[in-house]
C-alpha cells in the first residue's frame, strides 16, 4: 500500500462487515482505516484525514448521525452511509445533514464503490472547478449553461436546466426532493413533490431514449433523484 492510495475510513462495529469492506476496498485500490466506535472515527478523521468515509449508523457509543454532524462541522470529506431498509425518512435526514449518499444493507461491493467514486469525483470537480459533467451521452457544461446529447444541443427551459444542473453537480449521487424543490422553486414549495414529477417528466422526454424506461435520470423512491452514468450503471447491475 503506497501513500498515493486514497484513504478510506470504515466506521462499523461489526467485525465481519469491516472484514469484507476492507477486502473489497483494498482490491479497488483504497488504503483502509477501521474504526469501531464513533469516538474512534472522529479521532482517526482528525489524525489521518481520509479521502472517503463509510459510516454505519448503528454504533455502540453514539448515533451514526451524530458522528456525521460532528464530522461535517469541519470537514467536507465524501461520506457514504450504510443504512437499513424501509426508513426513507432517516435516509433523507442523513442526506440533508451532509451525507453524500447511502447504500442499503445488505449491499454488493460494486454498488458501494459506484456511490463512493461518484462522491469522490464530485469533490474533485468542486475543488478543480471542472465545468463539464459527462453522464454517458449527456454533457452538461455548467459554465456555458449548455446541454448536449452526443454533441447535439438540447434546448431546456430555465427551470429544466436548473433541475438538471443540480443533479449534474451531484452526478452519480442521490439528490433529495426537498433540496431540489428548495433550490428550484424556493422554500414555500418544499412539499410540492408533484412540481418535481412534472418537470422530471418533461426533462426525461428531452434527455432519455425511452422516457418510460429512464436510464440516466433515475428515481429513488421516497428520497429523490439520481443522475447515473449509463455504462457505470450497467456495470453495477452486471456485477451485482
Amino acid at each position: 500500500m503506497t501513500e498515493a492510495n486514497p484513504v478510506v475510513l470504515v466506521v462499523d462495529d461489526e467485525v465481519q462487515i469491516r472484514r469484507f469492506l476492507r477486502a473489497g476496498l483494498e482490491l479497488d485500490g483504497f488504503s483502509v482505516q477501521d474504526a469501531e466506535t464513533g469516538a474512534d472515527a472522529l479521532r482517526w478523521a482528525t489524525l489521518k484525514p481520509p479521502d472517503l468515509v463509510i459510516l454505519d449508523l448503528g454504533l455502540p457509543d453514539m448515533d451514526g448521525s451524530e458522528v456525521l454532524e460532528r464530522l461535517r462541522a469541519w470537514s467536507s470529506v465524501p461520506l457514504i452511509v450504510l443504512s437499513v431498509r424501509s426508513n426513507e425518512a432517516e435516509k433523507v435526514r442523513l442526506l440533508e445533514s451532509g451525507a453524500d449518499d447511502y447504500v442499503v444493507k445488505p449491499f454488493g461491493m460494486a454498488e458501494l464503490l459506484a456511490r463512493a467514486h461518484a462522491a469522490m469525483r464530485r469533490h474533485v470537480r468542486v475543488s478543480t472547478g471542472e465545468p463539464v459533467v459527462k453522464v454517458g451521452p449527456l454533457a452538461i457544461d455548467l459554465a456555458a449553461r449548455i446541454v448536449t446529447i452526443n454533441g447535439a444541443r438540447v434546448m431546456l427551459t430555465p427551470k429544466e436546466y436548473r433541475l438538471l444542473q443540480l443533479l449534474a453537480q451531484h452526478a452519480g449521487n442521490v439528490v433529495t426532493h426537498q433540496f431540489l424543490l428548495k433550490e428550484v422553486w424556493g422554500s414555500p414549495h418544499l412539499h410540492d413533490t408533484h412540481y418535481l414529477r412534472i418537470f422530471v417528466r418533461k426533462l426525461r422526454q428531452k434527455i432519455e431514449v425511452d422516457p418510460t424506461q429512464p436510464r440516466i435520470l433515475l428515481t429513488e423512491l421516497g428520497v429523490g433523484y439520481r443522475l447515473v452514468v449509463p455504462e457505470a450503471a450497467s456495470q453495477v447491475a452486471a456485477a451485482n
Binding site: 461489526e14 462487515i17 473489497g24 482490491l27 445488505p106 449491499f107 454488493g108 456485477a239
Partner: peptide
C-alpha cells in the same frame, strides 16, 4: 439474522470480483 447476512452477501460480491 440480518447482520451476518449483510456480511455473507457483501463477502460474496468481493469474492466474485477477485
Amino acid at each position: 439474522l440480518r447482520t451476518p447476512l449483510a456480511s455473507i452477501l457483501g463477502a460474496a460480491t468481493v469474492l466474485s470480483k477477485s
